[in-house]
Simulated scan of single mutants.
Amino acid sequence: MQLLKLVESEIQLNVPLPWNVRNHDCTLLLAQGHVVANAAQLEVLLERGMYVDLEEKRAVEALAAPAPQPRKSIYARWSDAIDTLERLVHDLPLAPNFPEYIEVLAEELITLAELDADIAIFMAVRQDQARHLRYGYSHSIYTALLCILIAQRMEWTAARVRLITLAALTMNVSIADLQGQMAGQDYPVLDRQRAQLRTHPTDSAAQLAEAGITDSHWLDAVRQHHEQTTGDGYPTGLTEIDELTQVLRMADVFMARISPRAIRPPMTVQDAARQMFRDDKGGVLSSTIIKVLGIYPPGSLVKLASGELGVVMRRGAEARTPLVAAVTDAQGRSVTTTLHRNTAEPAYAITSPAADDKNLLSRVPPERLYGYAQAGTQP
């Protein structure tokens, strides 16, 4: 038995002792549960010498220590990010400590993108079509993700990556709930809704300024994220727009096109990329987005030369050769095991995109494709 001498701070008056107390030769002085009633009694005991068995003390401390929290999966952390943004925006413009909290959220998204960008893209492409009411928040989260990937591909500094992430998260704070309402409605945009959309860049920037945001580049990006170099944008028809704001606008529009609405299905990633490339006249920014996502980004449903249908899991070395998980056999029957197909091999080459099949895709959650083992190494 290894004894450890006790000091005054380890004994609480009128609180049962958590362990047995002994003297220097291991003789029991006070049994576990005994109560030292007053300071005078404690002083006498300390002068005599109070000891505890080291192993017993460690065992008690281990029991008293809070249980470690289970590490959240990367999927739960993406969902939590949407929840966090919704809470922060609902408190605007009087949200306490908003600048600090939105910075923390931006850092979390950058971390998640670095942990596994393919899983992040999968979740953005395969958005939950039943959650229209939260569209305003999920759209900002996934637009921020796309901005992060584009900015990193263009080798921007960490400070600029952070800035565009913050702008994407906050560009629509004044209409986030309206966006959810509009995504779920089965009728066209109303005039009053259109009026709010028209002024939301300046309204959002004003709310951010009132909440304590002072970074002029951040506020300018929010004010200008619907402006176009042609002068056809809004709210002021600017023609001089910096690169960061142009990236933000293109990511915003791209994500909106591939997102579901009650009144229309989402545009395919391939059609959205084609339209963006045409609008940008084949410019550097649209080309970069296509390079970031690939022709068939994670989450896309595709037809293979083998006759199978598959879901893209990971981008490949070439834009047209991603790693795919077969979800049907050659006869179109669902498979219960995940079979990986390298589409660079002629036998499994992608022949075309496939129309979304909600029943089929509902049976292919990201956990089935990617598992939990690599679902985030951060606590």
Results as ranks from 00 to 15, higher is better:
50 M>E: 01
95 A>P: 05
296 Y>T: 00
177 D>F: 09
378 Q>V: 14
357 D>A: 03
230 T>D: 11
93 P>K: 02
122 F>L: 06
132 H>M: 11
315 R>H: 01
315 R>I: 02
373 A>T: 12
133 L>R: 15
379 P>I: 15
250 M>R: 07
248 L>D: 03
355 A>S: 14
56 E>L: 01
239 T>D: 04
99 P>D: 06
319 A>T: 07
163 L>A: 07
18 P>Q: 08
239 T>Q: 11
272 A>H: 00
338 T>Y: 07
166 L>A: 06
236 T>W: 15
108 E>Q: 14
221 A>Q: 06
230 T>E: 07
324 V>T: 07
226 H>R: 08
262 A>E: 15
232 D>C: 08
122 F>Y: 12
206 A>V: 10
302 V>W: 00
285 L>H: 03
349 A>V: 02
367 E>K: 08
189 V>P: 07
245 T>D: 05
143 T>S: 07
121 I>L: 04
210 E>Q: 15
86 E>W: 13
47 E>P: 01
77 R>E: 10
128 D>K: 02
218 W>E: 05
153 R>S: 10
272 A>M: 01
267 M>Y: 08
82 I>N: 10
307 G>I: 03
359 N>W: 14
127 Q>I: 12
327 V>C: 03
78 W>G: 00
88 L>G: 09
51 Y>F: 04
31 A>M: 14
135 Y>L: 12
232 D>F: 13
162 R>L: 02
214 T>R: 15
23 N>F: 10
198 R>G: 04
210 E>K: 12
74 I>M: 15
4 L>A: 14
160 R>I: 04
177 D>Q: 09
343 T>N: 00
261 R>Q: 11
16 P>Y: 01
277 F>E: 08
270 Q>M: 11
107 E>C: 08
118 D>R: 03
95 A>M: 07
41 Q>K: 10
106 A>P: 03
195 A>Y: 12
168 A>F: 05
90 H>A: 15
23 N>R: 02
149 L>D: 03
61 E>I: 08
44 V>A: 14
99 P>M: 11
43 E>Y: 10
74 I>H: 13
320 R>D: 09
134 R>H: 12
207 Q>Y: 12
303 K>T: 04
343 T>L: 01
356 D>R: 13
297 P>V: 01
91 D>K: 15
378 Q>R: 15
247 V>K: 00
307 G>H: 05
